[in-house]
């Protein structure tokens, strides 16, 4: 009887929410702005994706599925496959690199947590182009890596790392690693240490503690991190543009090429929508499948 019963006390007055069921007028300007700059353009793209290219670029309003048929051309399928493959690899590498540091930070005293998080964030807030350039500076044939390796006498002729899929993955991992670390940190931080200790106490090895307790309970963070890394990676433009070569084109480059070089807006739109639809579909399916299991730790 003495135990405070606040949660149900709250429910006692849960009916206080204003009865007005219409959105506030405060919402209107933002809705209009985003509607015009976000939703409408996407629908416009959808419409254009069923049209044809005019002779000098532009759009001829005919109803056709030709653009979507073109997407399954092996040439483009290969680009899609490469994009998904590189983005998946990037995501997995970010997970492997991000988990230890996220876990370490989450178990530090709160004051140190802030400092470490700041340390993780600072490079992230440096211009993406600058960070990409940094790796170009290091990896190119006359770059720092080769200079150092040659200086040490380890290699005779320069190693060609830049303009390859390896370079792209390095650039993407470097670019999006903090996207993985932050949600992972948040998830681990919410995971009570006592649960890990309880598992230990119940004879779990460290390996078992990790797989049976830590991973399941930090799944929301894992999922969030994976989504946050995968989406910009699969649609990346700068990294493959600057660090990849002609033979390592990704979807982002293809879209840019179709819009600005080939001036085939309808086909570019179709590619973009296929990309967006598959990403959203993948994310939604993933969240649905993982959803129920992902809940408990989010609340804890």
């Amino acid at each position: 009887m003495n135990s405070p019963t606040r949660p149900s006390d709250r429910s006692e007055c849960s009916g206080e929410a204003p009865a007005s069921r219409r959105p506030s007028r405060l919402l209107l300007p933002a809705l209009v702005w985003l509607g015009l700059c976000l939703v409408l353009p996407l629908f416009l793209m959808l419409a254009i994706s069923f049209a044809s290219r005019g002779t000098y670029g532009g759009v001829v309003w005919t109803l056709t599925l030709a653009n979507y048929a073109n997407v399954v051309d092996p040439l483009y399928v290969r680009i899609f496959a490469r994009s998904v493959g590189l983005a998946t690899l990037t995501t997995l590498l970010c997970l492997a690199l991000g988990f230890p540091i996220a876990y370490y930070i989450a178990r530090l005293p709160p004051r140190l947590q802030g400092i470490w998080l700041l340390l993780v964030m600072i490079p992230f807030w440096t211009n993406f182009l600058v960070r990409t350039y940094a790796w170009i500076f290091i990896l190119r044939a006359e770059g720092l890596l080769n200079t150092v390796l040659a200086g040490l006498g380890l290699i005779g002729s320069p190693v060609d790392v830049l303009y390859s899929e390896t370079a792209i993955v390095i650039g993407l991992v470097y670019g999006y690693l903090p996207f993985m670390i932050l949600p992972l940190y948040a998830a681990v931080e919410r995971l009570p240490v006592a649960l890990v200790e309880a598992a230990w106490d119940l004879y779990a090895s460290r390996w078992a503690v990790f797989w049976r307790v830590i991973v399941p309970l930090t799944k929301p963070g894992l999922v969030a991190g994976a989504i946050l890394v995968f989406i910009p990676s699969v649609g990346a433009f700068i990294t493959p543009d600057l660090m990849g070569g002609a033979r390592t084109m990704m979807i982002g480059n293809l879209i840019q090429h179709e819009f600005l070089v080939a001036r085939d807006w309808p086909f570019g739109s179709a590619i973009g929508l296929v990309l967006m639809a598959s990403v959203l579909l993948g994310v939604v399916t993933y969240l649905r499948a993982e959803g129920p299991g992902a809940r408990p730790a989010a609340g804890g």
């Binding site: 019963t5 149900s8 006390d9 006692e12 007055c13």
Partner: peptide, 11 residues
Amino acid sequence: PSGSGKTTTLR
């Protein structure tokens, strides 16, 4: 007890 309506009365 909680749920008895006392808080609602006060509000």
